[in-house]
Write a protein that binds this DNA or RNA. Sequence first.
DNA 1: GTAATTTTGTCAATGTTTTGTAAAGCTTTA
DNA 2: TAAAGCTTTACAAAACATTGACAAAATTAC
Lengths: 324, 324
Amino acid sequence: MTGLNSDSAQYLISTVSKRSGVKSDLVRAWERRYQAVTPTRTAGGHRVYTDQDIARLKLLNQATGNGHSISQIARYSLDDLKNLIKDEAGAVIPVLNGKTTSVSDRVYLTEDYIEKCYAAVLAFDARMLESHFENAIVELGTEVFIEHLLTPLLTRIGERWISGELRPVHEHMTSSVIRSLTYILRNNNPRAANAPRMIVSTPIGQLHELGALLAAIMAELSGWQVTYLGANLPAEEIAAGVKYTNACALTLSLSFATDDHIVAKELRRLKKLVGNNVAIIVGGRAASHFQGVLNEVGVLNIHGYAHFRQILNELAAKNLEQES
Amino acid sequence: MTGLNSDSAQYLISTVSKRSGVKSDLVRAWERRYQAVTPTRTAGGHRVYTDQDIARLKLLNQATGNGHSISQIARYSLDDLKNLIKDEAGAVIPVLNGKTTSVSDRVYLTEDYIEKCYAAVLAFDARMLESHFENAIVELGTEVFIEHLLTPLLTRIGERWISGELRPVHEHMTSSVIRSLTYILRNNNPRAANAPRMIVSTPIGQLHELGALLAAIMAELSGWQVTYLGANLPAEEIAAGVKYTNACALTLSLSFATDDHIVAKELRRLKKLVGNNVAIIVGGRAASHFQGVLNEVGVLNIHGYAHFRQILNELAAKNLEQES
DNA sequence: GTAATTTTGTCAATGTTTTGTAAAGCTTTA
DNA sequence: TAAAGCTTTACAAAACATTGACAAAATTAC
């Protein structure tokens, strides 16, 4: 770059109009009516603008396009305008449950909540964590809560656990809080009577239950009737659960990559025990580490939230038509 | 941060309507009739709202959706509204219409409930179990529920597990249901701010968490602030939990008598790690099996429900006088 | 249980404000 | 001198405000 900084660079109104996308007439109107920009003048009275002015007008243009009234935002600072735009950036699907706020707002709020929640985890403050969760559920709605708060939060906890910032207890405490919250989460979405049934657990050797919990909650919200069994269960027990509930799907979470062959062995046994009529779904940070067995046994491997939902819907549909 | 705080940001009514989900007409009606919001005005008379107003309307919208009459709640503070919504999230409506049943009636009722609940466990029907629990909590009250339903039920499950009638999965499923219920149980009894803190867990090798769960719930109901960590944790982790929360008591449940020396070793390490200022309480079916170590380490051994309550009260009193 | 009353969401009619656009007439600039 | 800019004035569509009314729903009274 040259030495041109934003103060020295100067433009006439036609240039500004082209670069900001706001018609000249309108630029003048905004100045006259609301002092949206305050250009200096040449000796002859022509307006002279800076780069900052252009940036400002660009943002104002975008904001008004988003429904904000120019009179209200005309005098906002550059930073404030940026925030305003950022808030609206994700506004793609503005309707979730009919009423309630736009998704983008809630997604934005989420970042705040994630920070607060993570801080509570780090401080090992279960009450605080629970309180934040409660507020978040109320404010964001269950869908957004799960997808944009819980999922990234748990991912982060997983990472920090690996890096050593968090200890296993942190995870246990968090699981505990979340488990007690499942009650609220579930109650918000009434289940159908003939909902397809699913077992969620983790195989022996997999002690981390956060992933499994998340899967259980997601499945519940997708209309499944989930029986959550907790972590670290032998294949026989999981299979027994499947049989007892007559579940048509079994979701396992693999969060930790182990080099022993326990998980592989358990998966094979599981497959043999539950047979071919039960779909086995596997997800979790370490799932790819076990890719070999997963392929061999023939399980559905989850890639992200959306994918899981898709799998759930497909399975539910298949299950429905089998029943009829 | 920028200067765009919740006071400065301003919106016109259409934006507010979009974000809060309340139609413009209705926003105005609520203002006119109940002063639900009190926006400022532009020079021309247009209403101008803040972020707070939007949050308010959002909550009001939700609350009215929940059956509250707008005239009653229109002037609530933001916090009150949040609480209103939060309380409803767990919506059990624990109202018994004033009519109280005698304690004896309720104890009698419990036997009925125990049978139903046990049948649900045996049938591996988590929904049914949860449903019975919910009804029982409402009908019996938390105290009776815990003492006369949950305690004997869990004892019975332990026995039947030994006899082979039940499998480990049954216990896992039951734990899962109870954990999700802790939310209701806790919410009925608000805790004091300066409540004494406690950690509840089970040591490595002790996979059964029902006893620990029960202890956690009891302690909560006795006014303790409990952090429940789940089962099967190494001494270091439990000790870390104690340190993080600054707990003055640690309750462990020992349900299964093992002949290896793991539990004994863990208990000794635990004692060394937490020091003498933290009371270690041990309960559970198999506690007596480890009597040797328990004496050596110097723990409080629980004998029944009443005894546990007594211990809790004594400790709480001691803790209180130490703090003052 | 029914009738009277109140609450509450919605709408319509009518007038005002906001806001983008544009024309007219004059001035500056290249 | 032609192009671009300035100011003033005007205009119309969209959005907003106010008032008053109405009917369904919820409460209350009988």
